[in-house]
Design a protein around this nucleic acid. Structure first.
Lengths: 303, 303
DNA sequence: ACGGGCTGTACGGAATTTCGAACAATGGAT
DNA sequence: ATCCATTGTTCGAAATTCCGTACAGCCCGT
């Protein structure tokens, strides 16, 4: 009875992802490999592991039992293999991070470059995903999120600037024409450039001043997917199409250059910076360990 | 970082056996595979695992650490894989037994045939080895030995006939010519057909009567390796070359047919039958579990 | 000193595994 | 009912892995 480790990982990926193609996406293997791997396993073991229709896949009782036992066992193997990584002159491996677009753009660049220079044998795999997903299920080692939600066995490490603000701004030309809002409710009479999460929800604009919190839901000519498309909204704002409401860091360069003019600045709402999340229960792969230490050190430096 | 399970097993086999070719013998893989597997592992991990000269091989510090962590981890994986075996209609797999030649000849046939008929999908791999070896190190699931030695975490199950005797006999023609010994010490004046273990030791002949134990070390014209060559000694005894001293069961057919005549029968020493040994610490592979149950059931039947 | 037998490894051919693309089947939306 | 996007699978080519044999090197006994 000889089975291939890769086949076992493949099987587990399919079970955890609940599908072959999804499992392929999460684990970075090809879908055909997963299919063939599972078939091989079933042949070798002589037991059907996955009950599949072309549309969905659910584990057989045997498959469920196998997956349950296999998961910690393979974790042990991975841990054992990772132990020798410490004996390398320089830690190596791949670190798969799951981050929202904002972080990828505003937080990571300052960290990633020196990190990769410090650890030349570590490969970074950044998955940009704004909707909140279970990082482990997505096959990532860790994730970065703004929500300070505490899940069991999840460790959160502050990363990047600790205080960020939501900024509101518009092109001077726009403000000259349409006037400068003095209170958030004035925005309802303005052209506002809104964003939409991948999940479909359109976050309301939130303002705060002296403890007063005001939420407004203005309309406007442009609605962009939050993520990479944010640049489009910023460009539109610079062009004078309307008022934009975003992380201050996104707008900073244009505020500095004068292309955008702050609006309602006293109302800008502070909120805490993002956190790096990872599972403390499982053995930390060396690359993640290195990254966590790196981030903590940078934080301690008073970056 | 993807490693092949087979490579891991290969690495472990080399470490445990203390050599590539020995590891190949114990694990049933080819030596070249072991070499290539270890090289692959080292390349993938980027660490040298085995320090080797062409004559010997010792684990690197990293290799030792890996092996130590890997051994239980792979055991877990094997156990997990074996769990699904229970879901098969009929248990399957290979059972590797390490037995002395005597057992292979006198004890196993009566057990193996009905066992294999009961479990058609189980393959039996019988390694005949008279010298005592560590079964686990030899890559066997279990072993059968006469010595009732208790090692830690070893479980012993009686197997086969519980009482056996050492019989002494010779051809009638020989006894007519040379006379019939009346006491074990008389053997010193006879032509005795001796056996020798693979280790080189020549066991003395032991006799017992009413609590008196007598050991004699007679000489004779023939010395055979205990094992398959025993047939040669028996044939020689039948031909009248001298007196033979063996398990009664070996001689039984010739005693029945009259080709051999019992000698010193009151002195024949009883001793307990063999035991099936296996490690209780590790997870029992399904085929071994089946075999143990089968043996216990046969024993309980009062076979 | 020096063979002899053993070790670990390199090499070619055969088998297995992997990938990308195409395929048939299925379930939800229209 | 029907479309169509998506799923799991199949297929042939490319890469990897595996085996048996042959080689170079070392240890041990004489």
């Amino acid at each position: 009875m000889d089975a291939n480790l890769r086949d076992l990982f493949a099987f587990l990926a399919v079970v955890r992802a609940g599908g072959f193609r999804e499992g392929a996406r999460a684990s970075g293997m090809s879908a055909s490999r997963l299919s063939e791997s599972v078939q091989r396993l079933e042949t070798r073991l002589g037991v059907r592991l996955l009950h599949r229709t072309t549309r969905s896949v659910s584990p057989t009782e045997a498959g469920a039992r196998l997956a349950e036992r296999l998961f910690p066992a393979l974790g042990e193997v991975e841990a054992a293999l990772d132990v020798v990584n410490h004996d390398r002159a320089r830690p190596a491996g791949t670190l798969k991070l799951n981050v929202p677009a904002t972080v990828a753009r505003l937080v990571l660049p300052a960290i990633v470059t020196p990190f990769l220079k410090t650890y030349p044998d570590i490969r970074l795999d950044v998955i940009v995903e704004d909707s909140y997903v279970d990082m482990l299920a997505a096959g990532c080692d860790a994730g970065i999120r703004y929500d300070e939600r505490l899940e069991k066995d999840m460790i959160a490490v502050p990363i990047g600037p600790r205080i960020q603000r939501m900024a509101t701004a518009a092109a001077p030309a726009y403000l000259e024409t349409h006037g400068r809002p003095q209170h958030p409710r004035d925005l309802l009479a303005h052209a506002c450039l809104r964003g939409q999460f991948a999940s479909g929800t359109i976050p309301t604009w939130e303002f705060e001043r002296d403890g007063d919190i005001v939420r407004v839901d203005p309309t406007g000519p442009l609605l962009v997917r939050l993520g990479a498309a944010v640049d489009l909204a910023v460009a539109a704002a610079v062009e004078g199409l309307g008022i934009i409401h975003l992380f201050e860091a996104w707008l900073q360069p244009h505020l500095d250059s004068g292309a955008l003019e702050p609006v309602l600045e006293p109302w800008w709402q502070d909120f805490s910076g993002p956190y790096l999340y990872y599972s403390g229960r499982r053995h930390l792969p060396t690359p993640l360990r290195a990254f966590v230490d790196f981030v903590k050190a940078a934080e301690g430096d008073g970056s």
